[in-house]
Design a protein around this nucleic acid. Structure first.
Length: 480
RNA sequence: GGCGCCGUGGCCAAGUGGUAAGGCAGAGGACUGCAAAUCCUCUAUCCCCGGUUCGAAUCCGGGCGGCGCCUCCA
């Protein structure tokens, strides 16, 4: 059947059909660098990561572009409040978000354009729109898009362009608009912009680009004529993406995007995350508190991207346990005794069917909840086999390892979890030494001494698992 | 007011016409020196009412409840 994805534009799930399967061009709206990213941002970024990883897993050649918005009202305001230049201010948060994304296992995308590096293309875009009569300048040096001249406006979000809002009161900086719905392509220079390094010259006057324009310019420059997949948070459908379509198609005359995907927002303890509620949760804060990155990844990834996800303390705990189960299985599989030949235990069959079911689940509009269920079903089945078969064939074991690794190429849970369990060589050697001492104590049936050693290790976060093939140990992950 | 989404066991969450995946939590059992890990068993008729159908959580109608966007917002 192939990959099927929901398309916001058609409001239905449809086959994913890139123009050129060999090079799928994807543009994702990235963070605005005014402050630290929060878990809501990261739910969206992890959704991007899923799209990225899954399409590559399915064999597509993916060219994935995620921008950084480093100039807009908020970044300028934040930079000015700190007395920093725009460039200095945004660099701080760019570094931070990249670092956090790495910690959560978000694979690096191909290109990260920063808006301020695309002023040229933006100016060119506006010039074309002016030529075509789709834009007009105002006395303060701003340029607005003329929505009345673009009949398709509203198609993505399902709005009637003619209705409502026309006669609305205009905001303070929007003097001169012909129509209340018209949006700014370029904002004429204002007090303080130049000092903050937020002013560029253009044929119609000095100023800075409008937010919507930035994404159009970067998408057209970095992805090309038509974007196969354009991703974003659900809040961007209107007006941001509607405006991107209007500008891009108005200027080029070509379809801008084939397929739109939007991730739903998350809630925190049942409530909307907002400044006024004071419940904005930063990823950096959580990680600093000792929350496991793998657990956080699991939680943010575990619900389908088009359903509301409720971020709770309890959910985080459940996710942590779930990831532990995966990691325990991973290490059990790797250390399970094998022989070169002999009767099959059923592990190979379980591996093959897990891979097929996983693909089926993810092909269906990235149904990750079902995909994760398939994974746990696999873990369960194989654990059962390992219980009843003290030794399995090497080829079977390898097949199971390969299946697990393959699925984790998409989920990245074991990938991130393993990192957190890793210990340095010195600690590792000490652990091995202690385990050997405990082994001797146990052999001598000196339980008190053996348990004292186990407690000693537990105090360092090391958990032991005795099995027929010896004792395995693991580093307990973060507090949550 | 306009557009849209959702309501499944204690919590989270799949399933969208054939009699309920998975994770967490809970109970009992097996294994273990004790643990840990693991396995087995048990725990829901799907917000309510009506309709369509041989058959509905799944379709239709009506309620009730929760939520999103419409303004900066992932």
């Amino acid at each position: 059947m192939g990959v099927r994805l929901y398309n916001t534009a058609s409001r239905s799930v449809q086959p994913f059909s890139p123009q050129d399967p060999g090079r799928v061009g994807i543009y994702a709206c990235g963070p605005t660098l005014y402050g630290p990213a929060h878990i809501g941002n990261f739910r969206t970024f992890l959704f991007y990561d899923l799209v990225h990883r899954y399409l590559e897993w399915r064999g597509y050649g993916v060219h994935f572009v995620m921008n950084f918005t480093d100039v807009d009202d908020k970044t300028i305001a934040a930079a000015r409040a700190r007395g920093a230049t725009l460039a200095d201010h945004t660099l701080v948060y760019e570094r931070q978000v990249v670092e956090e994304a790495d910690l959560l296992g978000v694979r690096r995308f191909d290109v990260y354009p920063r808006a301020t590096a695309y002023i040229g293309p933006m100016v060119a875009l506006v010039e074309r729109l002016l030529e075509r009569g789709l834009a007009y300048t105002t006395p303060d040096g701003s340029v607005f898009f003329r929505i009345a001249a673009f009949p398709d406006y509203g198609a993505l979000s399902g709005r009637d362009p003619g209705a409502a809002r026309t006669g609305e009161r205009v905001a303070g900086d929007d003097y001169g608009k012909e129509d209340g719905r018209d949006f700014a392509l370029w904002k004429g220079i204002k007090e303080g912009d130049r000092e903050a390094g937020a002013a560029w010259s253009a044929p119609w006057g000095e100023g800075r680009p409008g937010w919507h324009l930035e994404c159009s310019a970067m998408a057209l420059s970095e992805v090309g004529g038509t974007v196969d997949l354009h991703l974003g948070g659900e809040d961007l459908i209107f007006p941001h993406h509607e405006d991107e379509i209007a500008q891009s198609e108005g200027a080029t005359g070509n379809p801008f995007v084939r397929h739109w995907l939007h991730a739903k927002h998350l809630r925190v303890e049942g409530r909307k995350m907002s400044k006024s509620l004071g419940n904005i949760v930063g990823v950096g804060t959580l990680l600093a508190e000792g929350v496991s990155a793998a657990a956080l990844r699991h939680l943010l990834l575990s619900a389908h991207y088009r359903t509301e996800l409720n971020f709770t303390e309890e959910g985080l705990k459940a996710s942590r346990r779930a990831v532990d189960r995966l990691l325990d299985f991973d290490s059990r599989l790797l250390s399970h005794p094998v022989r070169s030949s002999g009767p099959e235990s059923g592990v190979r069959e379980a591996s093959e069917s897990a891979l097929a079911s996983f693909r089926e689940a993810l092909d269906d509009d990235l149904n990750i909840a079902r995909g994760i269920a398939v994974l746990f079903g696999f873990v369960n089945r194989v654990n059962g086999r390992l219980d009843t078969h003290a030794v399995i064939g090497r080829a079977e074991r390898d097949a199971a390892c390969a299946a697990l690794a393959s699925i984790d190429e998409v989920l990245g849970l074991i990938e991130v979890g393993r990192r957190e369990r890793r210990v340095d060589k010195e600690l590792g050697d000490w652990i091995e030494e202690r385990i050997e001492a405990r082994r001797r104590a146990r052999a001598a049936r000196e339980w008190m001494r053996a348990d004292a050693i186990r407690d000693e290790l537990a105090a360092e976060g090391i958990v032991l698992e005795d099995g027929p093939a010896g004792t395995r140990w693991k580093m307990r992950q973060g507090r949550h």
